[in-house]
């Protein structure tokens, strides 16, 4: 407690907002983001594999098998409603994005100081537990989606057809309109990954920040008086309310990041 009391509120927030880094310049790596996201990916993969292996038609599914089957079938139905064609890869993509993002977002619900304190006791001065509050985490997924969108367009229209659409749509194929068409298409194309990455990053970052601000209510109490008790009660109450509300954001943002790439890919295959 003594160390925390010594911290100013801005120090506290800054400390929680700093990644554990190695390297320099572009080749800087956020060790916390990489370790957390890889560990959660491994956990998700293990859970899905376990359920898929245990799934059997000899008896009705129960427990983790029923849960995973339910999630898989729900996602498959969502994808089939958006994309009409062979959706095996897109279902895998949607399952990957949804389960992984839910797992990462859920880290926001851990007690705020616990992971960094644990990492601190293991010798790491900083530890951000939420990979989706790191723009690198969300941008990587968004850029991968962008590559898939372009690939889907090229695959369904051919390289020539895809390039033709760049200059000929949406206004028309008059040579005077080639540049406006290309500019608009560029904006449209770039807006997709940017909005995907920034939406998830912004939501999770803001959610984390609000948890910090709520935590500061209790941290500002130096000795237990009447006012201090009120502040601690306020922290507990607001923290609980925000956590419950945040469950919705955790799932909703994962859902959005699952559905929009499928929509973008389905749109990219449409002919204008």
């Amino acid at each position: 407690m003594a160390a925390e009391l010594a911290e100013s509120p801005s120090d506290y927030v800054n400390h929680h907002m700093t990644h554990l880094r190695v390297g320099h310049g572009f080749w800087t790596f956020h060790v916390d983001t990489l370790v957390m996201s890889a560990a959660l990916a491994a956990f998700v993969a293990w859970l899905l594999w376990l359920a898929a292996r245990r799934a059997s038609n000899a008896r009705h599914p129960t427990g983790v098998v029923a849960f995973v089957e339910f999630v898989y079938e729900w996602i498959d139905t969502e994808v089939s409603a958006i994309y009409h064609g062979n959706r095996k890869f897109l279902t895998a993509l949607a399952v990957t994005l949804f389960t992984w993002i839910v797992a990462m977002n859920t880290m926001d619900l851990l007690p705020l100081d616990a992971p960094s304190k644990l990492a601190g006791s293991l010798g790491a001065p900083f530890w951000r537990v939420l990979p989706t509050a790191d723009i690198n985490g969300t941008a990587a997924m968004a850029v991968f989606v962008l590559i898939l969108v372009v690939a889907a367009g090229v695959r369904s229209k051919g390289a020539g057809g895809y390039l033709h659409e760049w200059i000929a749509a949406p206004f028309g194929s008059n040579p005077l309109l080639w540049i406006p068409n290309a500019i608009l298409n560029l904006i449209e194309l770039v807006a997709k990954p940017v909005s995907l990455a920034m939406r998830l990053f912004g939501n999770m970052f803001a959610g984390e920040l609000i948890f910090m601000l709520i935590a500061l209510l209790g941290l500002s109490v130096s000795h237990v008086t009447g006012k201090g008790l009120v502040l601690i009660a306020a922290q507990v109450l607001l923290g609980s309310v925000w956590a419950v509300f945040h469950i919705l954001i955790v799932l909703l943002q994962a859902f959005i990041f699952m559905v929009l790439p499928i929509v973008y890919i389905a749109m990219a295959e449409e002919h204008h």
Binding site: F29, L34, N136
Partner: peptide, 9 residues
């Protein structure tokens, strides 16, 4: 944006 991006990818 830094090397973390590539790791995440």
């Amino acid at each position: 944006i830094n090397g973390t991006f590539i790791g995440q990818l």
